[in-house]
Design a protein around this nucleic acid. Structure first.
Lengths: 257, 257
DNA sequence: GGAATAGTGTCTCTCAGACATTATGTC
DNA sequence: GACATAATGTCTGAGAGACACTATTCC
């Protein structure tokens, strides 16, 4: 411990160097849907995308980076992340969680800057306004694989990879799929969202696992209308599909169960 | 983004307030064994404990706190955590992982101090030296429940609770149990370690689940001696028990599997 | 033989995984 | 009738959960 031992009256700020800033950087993921050009109704193709901004000034001018900004002494770091998310996308009250701290000396040429990365999951509808201005803008959605292949500013390639690993794991072990879906969705949509994030996901008897396996039953529930009739949707298919919604239930996973 | 737009030559440190420090605090868990006073060999009682230090100076003088120290600009925060762990316990190369950041304004009366909490899991043997001096010392192991009931310095009650939640979850979903066990252990010991961290854990057919269930088979493997004979131990029982070791296998858990 | 721990036998009901089959509505 | 998606039928082998039972060694 290298803390001074004096009391409040005699306490003086330490003579050691202090950090030059503690910013929050945000990895904003969304899943875009692209209707396929078939004559008949069909499922859209879905793709996991990440929001990047083009840097204007030094350092890394001209390169793409994660949105972010310095935190203030009047807010927690998650509050600054939420503020930044609001400024960048206009959305509030979406899923945002802390990812990791990045403190490698020299990671930022401006000084000793310790960055805190967050992951935000945003439904594509919330970003609809931004998308319109796509090509010209300095704020854009990139498919994740494409973004990873770019040379991003700072250590943002690393942060993005960490964020991707995190949501891939969470997609299978938690109900974050709900963040990319409307309140009521079909089994087909849910399956596509999982696939968009975890391409290797394959589960032939998906509907049975999720609806009638004892240990999993209750993660999602059927939606009924005011008369108690099962509510269906045919937005993506000829044959109407049952609508479901997530409940608050999350099964406890265990390797020893 | 409130970053300056100038280039490197004209860049000047921002006029905003910068943090007064970015310490690493470490929640060091161990599981102690206490032999029971029975005439015959029997399993020890095991308890999850956390290492705390008594603060000497302002602020929170006289209160117990998590060990920690300020990070330097020449190291990553995890490196400062490892350095601190080495100073406090003398151990290196143990399991240590990042927990969370604590940045509530006012959490530290010394200024704007953003703390990074880590969780370290240490085998009790490594702490054996410290334990001898227990009662008189200003560094002590406390049973976790007892520590949570104390009034710890700073926001360390919160950090400790977060750390406990984290390892409870990890104990069931990863193989961190290995950090509290010798290289070779019996099923009974493993079961006790899980119980010490997750008291509500009950699994009547434990040995069968862990050794012969298809999806779990391979997490641990039987130990054999140089002649290929199964290696047994009777340190805790009359009847010798098979020794096992962890492998590198970790099953993928999924709520959709 | 009693105590303490280690490990097996056995039974029932559910689930996993594979794959074929039926259902519904559009063009 | 071809197509696209939704959903069920059916079969086999594996696993979950419960609990009685045997095994080993020390005292």
């Amino acid at each position: 411990m290298n803390e001074p031992l004096d009391d409040a009256a005699t306490y003086s700020p330490r003579k050691y160097r202090t950090p030059d800033g503690a910013p929050a950087d945000i990895v904003i993921f969304t899943i875009t849907s692209q209707a396929r050009n078939t004559v008949k109704k069909s499922l859209p193709t879905r793709q996991l995308e990440v929001l990047l901004i083009e840097r204007k000034g030094w350092p890394f001018a001209g390169q793409w980076a994660l949105p972010g900004g310095f935190s203030k002494d009047t807010e927690t770091i998650i509050e600054s992340a939420k503020r930044e998310l609001q400024e960048e996308t206009g959305v509030e009250d979406v899923h945002i969680e802390y990812l990791n701290v990045y403190s490698e000396p020299g990671r930022d040429p401006r000084g000793w800057i310790i960055s805190h990365a967050f992951v935000a999951l945003v439904h594509e509808n919330y970003l609809a306004g931004r998308r319109a201005a796509d090509d010209a803008a300095d704020v854009r959605l990139f498919p994740v694989e494409e973004a990873l292949a770019m040379n991003l500013a700072f250590d943002h390639n690393l942060i993005l990879q960490d964020a991707l690993n995190r949501i891939r794991h969470q997609m299978l072990t938690t109900t974050i799929a709900r963040e990319f879906l409307p309140e009521e969705f079909t089994i087909g949509e849910l399956y596509q969202v999982i696939e968009a994030v975890v391409p290797e996901f394959v589960e032939r008897n998906f509907i049975r696992k999720i609806t009638s396996t004892q240990s999993r039953k209750g993660i999602i529930e059927e939606v009924r209308d005011s008369r108690g009739e099962l509510k269906m949707s045919n937005r993506y298919s000829q044959r109407a599909a049952q609508l479901y919604r997530f409940t608050d239930f999350l099964p406890q996973l265990s390797i020893y169960s």
